[in-house]
């Protein structure tokens, strides 16, 4: 077994500082340190506190990627400080690194933020098993390995908030539950023992629910536990259709509209999709549509070039469809 040689390099850190008790505005402090290839981001936070400024504040506990409390941002990337190696950060961003809390606008002191909105949303999805299981059951409530696989690692979430504060929608729409809450909702919706009927309805409501996800996949990219919240969001969409709780609204019609278009043309009828999704509300799109029409960007339905071998597509839709709306 070969032992990798430990290398050292100089790294310039720009560190976010703010104390809500005494500061009006945040500021940044610069530190230059020799960093070894085997250090993690948390080691740097410790060294700032121990070697430079004892007042520097951050949360830490398990140091094993389990408690989820030390998540911060390095050059804008949400990261779990105790798990993220410095060599990866240097490889990603070079030797100038900016250390910030997960959300600067929620900062209380340095890296410590008020995660109230995260917990509020988490609680809103009933993140526990709702089941009529006898307090003193006479036998075990078995879950088969196949059924357990359905959770798809959603139960590994440590509520670190990395995905929540990487999600652009959370920053724009304060009602939006966010990827961590959706992953938690999926974890219990996918549990065969769960009998809560309300959770799936709640996560499909407009404004707060999965339909406002912009599909940027930032959540999946940052998750330190590899949970892939984006795929859980997709599965919650699918569940809503399968379990018949999907409402007839612009978002669901937008998804179903693709099928109608593909069935008819193979390719998408862009205008038809908007009409199908919006219904009479299509009038609000008229100004943009006219502008696009003038620029030759609107193809009339009768001029759409259909896919060759359309009969194949139609046959496959007939034989492979698994959902009805």
């Amino acid at each position: 077994m070969s032992i990798n040689k430990i290398s050292t390099q100089k790294v310039n850190f720009k560190v976010f500082r703010f104390n809500s008790d005494v500061d009006y505005l945040p500021y940044y402090e610069d530190y230059t340190m020799d960093v070894t290839s085997e250090e993690v981001v948390l080691d740097i936070l410790n060294r700032i506190k121990w070697d430079h400024d004892g007042s520097f504040s951050y949360r830490r506990s398990c140091r094993h990627g389990i408690c989820g409390i030390c998540a911060i941002k390095v050059n804008g990337r949400s990261t779990l400080a105790c798990k993220e190696s410095m060599s990866t950060m240097i490889e990603y961003f070079g030797n100038d690194l900016t250390i910030e809390p997960l959300s600067t606008k929620r900062a209380v002191k340095d890296m410590i933020i008020d995660k109230g909105d995260f917990w509020e949303k988490h609680a809103a999805v009933t993140p526990y098993l709702v089941a009529d299981i006898d307090e003193c059951p006479s036998c075990e409530n078995l879950v088969s390995p196949h059924d357990a696989e359905e959770l798809d690692d959603a139960d590994l979430c440590i509520q670190c908030g990395a995905c929540h504060y990487a999600c652009p929608v959370v920053e724009i729409n304060s009602d939006f539950f966010g990827p961590a809450a959706f992953a938690a909702a999926y974890r219990f919706e996918a549990d065969v023992r769960d009998s809560d009927g309300q959770r799936l309805i709640d996560v499909n409501e407009e404004k707060q629910g999965v339909w406002d996800c912009v599909k940027c996949i930032e959540c999946t990219e940052v998750c330190p536990k590899g949970i892939d919240p984006f795929s859980k969001i997709t599965k919650l969409h699918q569940m809503a259709f399968k379990k018949g709780v999907a409402k007839n609204n612009v978002a669901t019609r937008h998804a179903v509209g693709f099928l109608h278009s593909i069935k008819r043309n193979g390719v998408l009828d862009e205008g038809g999709l908007v009409l199908y999704s919006e219904g009479v509300s299509i009038v609000k799109h008229i100004p943009v549509a006219l502008q696009m029409f003038r620029k030759g960007k609107i193809v009339m339905p009768w001029n759409i070039v259909k896919s060759d071998n359309l009969d194949e597509i139609q046959k496959l839709i007939k034989s492979s469809s698994t959902v009805k709306f």
Partner: peptide, 26 residues
Amino acid sequence: LTEASCCGASHLQDYDDFLSLVLNAR
């Protein structure tokens, strides 16, 4: 590829995952 269909644009997938796989595989 004039035979190709729409990829579903990440929305058909929200409705019917298997169908989306079949069409993209085609």
